[in-house]
Design a protein around this nucleic acid. Structure first.
Length: 452
RNA sequence: GCCCCGGUAGUGUAGCGGCCUAUCAUGCCAGCCUGUCGAGCUGGCGACCCGGAUUCAAAUUCCGGCCGGGGCGCCA
């Protein structure tokens, strides 16, 4: 260890030689420098303990009053909790301390003093409302269980990038500021764009489809969805994130569903392999789904629900309560994940491919992927015939002329294609059993909140 | 858009017409303690969202405002 051979110097040469959990028996007896946030100080008269937290965990700095410079003892014990410090000292093995060692300080540098009282505690033994936590998210995120959610979220996204790039998809970025034409189905946020009115995009749908006319064949985007719906629920955000993809030369929606289920399996696999600490911290065990995932047609779902006493008018979407009930029914059969396929055409957006390619078909080649009764993905084979697309736009009460920029991409060679959008917050929420989706995004945007 | 519910110290709560000079915990401040790790003990600090109204009396009832939570619809 090069740090072992380092001479003690008057000045701290660096703020950190080791993270809390990186210290091994090799460092015992050597000088190390550690840095982080002061989580707690327990002063007991002649001995005091300072718990220092860094991104890997916590460690203990032990101060014996008799053996320590009085100035240094006072300086360390007088710190406010959550101040940021660097401590240079000797690493001493100890079976009484966490991680099997403690740091006997020789020098401390106060890098930032925390004010008091804290707007909320990091390790206090009292509850904190989600709202208070979100108002003070920078402190909330100091909690290891909160960090665990985002470490797992990071792995989810990492897995998606890895799987998709490994399977010929290229990452794209579509504009978030769009002109008037939109896919419909939701309210958009209006923004002033110089002298014009513009909107925040509800999804990259029309752009990723446009990309199918280019020859890239397979694209994906970690996309932002902006939706101006006045919903106020535990599973909706006004700004959300999705893994959105589109693939060309598909024979049917089955090709898309196959990609989706393999992607999901890879994500679950990757999280299971790389997040054991985080999962156990959150008390969650996850099961990598086996393939193929169960397919249930819309008609079957409606029939099953009818048998359980919930009547859905054919053609209507399956409501939240019914969706939950179906989730319970499927779970009894051992299916956490299941597709609902063959939706009524009328229940799906204009770009969904009718089952037999006719504008007045009864069903669409569209599917949702459900996880424990919550929709995490919506997808379909898309219409690639411009005539049919225009008919469907009209049938939805929209004007084809408003979609001219989009339709143009279909007139000069557009292959059959399909795709889906997979909500990242919804994945994390349902994977980890989190009750409120706001916990799954750093700075959530909901009906009331635009800050921080 | 529709329908419920709530706002009491920094944080989380109890109180729901007079017993409130407002409970408890946590936090903060001071003191004691040589092995703490949800440390312990002693003392102290700190709050009824705002504006009207009712009443002898309002944290408590009513009206309005502001802020927030949840459900539905819609969706990821």
């Amino acid at each position: 260890m090069q740090f072992c051979s380092m001479k003690a110097s008057d000045k701290m040469e660096c703020y950190r030689t080791h993270y809390s959990t990186e210290v091994t028996t090799a460092q015992h007896g050597c000088e190390i420098t550690v840095a982080g946030w002061v989580q707690d100080i327990r002063e007991m008269g002649s001995i005091a303990f300072l718990i220092l937290r860094d991104r890997m965990g916590t460690l203990q700095v032990t101060m014996l009053k008799k053996k320590l410079d009085p100035e240094l003892f006072k300086k360390l014990c007088g710190l406010n909790r959550e101040s940021v410090i660097a401590v240079r000292g000797t690493c001493k093995p100890s079976d009484k301390a966490r991680n099997g060692y403690e740091v006997i300080p020789e020098e401390v540098e106060i890098l930032s003093e925390a004010g008091t009282p804290l707007p909320m505690g990091v390790v206090d033994k009292v509850g904190v409302d989600l709202d208070t936590r979100l108002d003070n998210r920078f402190i909330d995120l100091r909690k290891e269980e909160v960090q665990a959610i985002f470490k797992i979220r990071n792995r989810v996204i990492e897995a998606a990038h890895g799987y998709l790039r490994g399977n010929g998809f290229i990452e794209m970025h579509s504009p978030n500021i769009i002109g008037a034409s939109s896919e419909g189905g939701t309210d958009l946020f209006a923004v002033q764009y110089f002298e014009k009115q513009a909107f925040l995009s509800q999804s990259p749908q029309l752009y990723k489809q446009t990309m199918m006319a280019t020859g890239f064949d397979r694209v994906y985007e970690i996309a932002k969805y902006f939706r101006a719906e006045q919903h106020n629920t535990r599973r909706h955000l006004n700004e959300s994130t999705a893994i959105d993809l589109e693939m060309a030369f598909v024979r049917s929606e089955e090709d898309v569903m196959g990609t989706l289920e393999r992607l999901i399996r890879h994500i679950w696999d990757h999280v299971a392999d790389n997040c054991t600490d985080e999962l156990s911290l959150l008390g969650v065990s996850i099961t990598v789904p086996s393939l193929p995932m169960r397919r249930v047609t819309y008609d079957e779902a409606v029939e099953r629900l009818a048998k359980s006493g919930v009547d859905i008018k054919w053609g209507d979407d399956i409501g939240t309560e019914a969706e939950k009930l179906l989730g319970d029914l499927m779970q009894k059969e051992g299916c956490e994940f299941y597709f609902i396929t063959k939706y009524p055409l009328e229940a799906k957006p204009f770009y969904a491919m009718p089952e037999n390619g006719m504008a007045d078909d009864r069903y669409a080649r569209a599917f949702d992927l459900e996880l424990n009764g919550v929709e995490i993905t919506s997808g379909a084979q898309r219409i690639h015939d411009v005539k049919l697309l225009e008919e469907r736009i009209t049938a939805k009460g929209l004007k084809p002329s408003d979609f001219e920029g989009y339709l143009k991409a279909f007139r000069y060679g557009m292959p059959p294609h399909g795709g889906f959008g997979l909500g990242i917050e919804r994945i994390v929420m349902n994977m980890l059993g989190i009750q409120n989706i706001r916990e799954c995004t750093l700075f959530p945007r909901d009906r009331m909140r635009i800050s921080p």
